[in-house]
Design a protein around this nucleic acid. Structure first.
Lengths: 191, 191
DNA sequence: CATTGAAAATAATCGGCGATCAATTTATTA
DNA sequence: TAATAAATTGATCGCCGATTATTTTCAATG
């Protein structure tokens, strides 16, 4: 119940507006009760974030892949982009949440992210014929982070007020994939 | 005085820990006084952020460019990356700050970002012989946002606990630049 | 059925937050 | 010096997350 109320409050009012009092009122309890279920508000919100990441993964996982890296990355990015639009406040919440100094994200959180990056890994794998997994994972992470950067700056209007996110993402993928191809063939030529 | 105190508090304790009471105590006033100088805490923090962006620009602007896009982008990225490390809390503050719904960033803020992206624009310009400025600006923004994504996820440990930021950035630049080169030459061949 | 003990939930409280504003102090000008 | 304007305060408001003693609920036991 608490998790449901939190999700709906974040969706409705945004991350910064939720409070323990609002959450517990929503489900007909007083604020103290929340602490019987969650250690603190951080733990509750992390639970919500993991859920959000898993929902995103479910969405992307259901997209049929073609085997063409560029096309598949675009499909994944489109799905991702759409998810951020339709779950704006939940997605923003993922990154507005700050972990306190010294604390580390729970293992389940890391795992949820890993599963997402795995999708990108599988999408770009055909680019590397016999290349090491490490390189693939590395590039998938770069793409993942870059995509996040574009979506994030776009959402906060700190990138451009006028241009289309979609075209930024398309450029990223097109050029990065071409770059991998080009750099790989350079390497094989030089052998 | 207030701006100085705010900067030093953000540097010392981090963005989320600053408060009007702490700031004004630091300079020997009471909290109400701040509102004679700034409309609200948002306006004060935006002032600090603009200052941070301008300091970053000054740093990057002073780096000598060679004319080689990949090398120059790497130099700029290194400078940027170093700045985020040496001004961790100030840089985090830039992106932890959320603008309220409906509000828009002040024109000076946008301009400060533009000036930063301009540096990337000039760095990659040699790649485009006779290409339109729009394309160049577009790619510079993609690079800027991607770089932000890498630095940001890395700082919040939401990317990888083990790998080196530097190698992510290097991959981004290497592949993206190679991609631009490759896609441009494809286009000219197809003419 | 009545009793008891644990679990669930509350109400009150703490210190802190951003913001507002009438009242007061300080400085400037006539 | 007196009158006016500017600067500053202190109290207050309605929030916040968190803690804890107290009360309520309720199922298990005799």
């Amino acid at each position: 119940m608490i998790l449901d109320a939190t999700r709906s409050l974040v969706e409705k009012e945004g991350y910064s507006k939720v409070s323990i009092r609002k959450i517990t009122n929503e489900v007909g309890y007083t604020s103290g009760t929340l602490y019987l279920v969650f250690k603190d508000i951080d733990e509750l919100l992390l639970e919500l974030h993991i859920e959000t990441l898993e929902r995103l993964h479910a969405l992307l996982h259901a997209i049929p892949m073609t085997g063409d890296p560029e096309a598949d990355l675009l499909k994944l990015s489109d799905g991702y982009s759409e998810f951020t639009k339709e779950n704006r406040n939940l997605w923003n919440a993922l990154f507005e949440h700050k972990i306190e100094d010294g604390k580390v994200l729970p293992e389940r959180y890391d795992r949820a992210i890993f599963k997402l990056i795995d999708l990108a890994i599988e999408a770009i794998r055909p680019l590397y014929q016999g290349g090491s997994d490490e390189d693939i994972i590395h590039d998938a992470r770069v793409l993942w982070a870059s995509l996040y950067g574009i979506l994030s700056l776009d959402a906060s209007k700190k990138l451009s007020r006028y241009e289309d996110t979609q075209s930024f993402i398309a450029s990223l993928i097109k050029n990065y994939v071409a770059g991998i191809r080009s750099n790989l063939s350079d390497a094989s030529i030089s052998l």
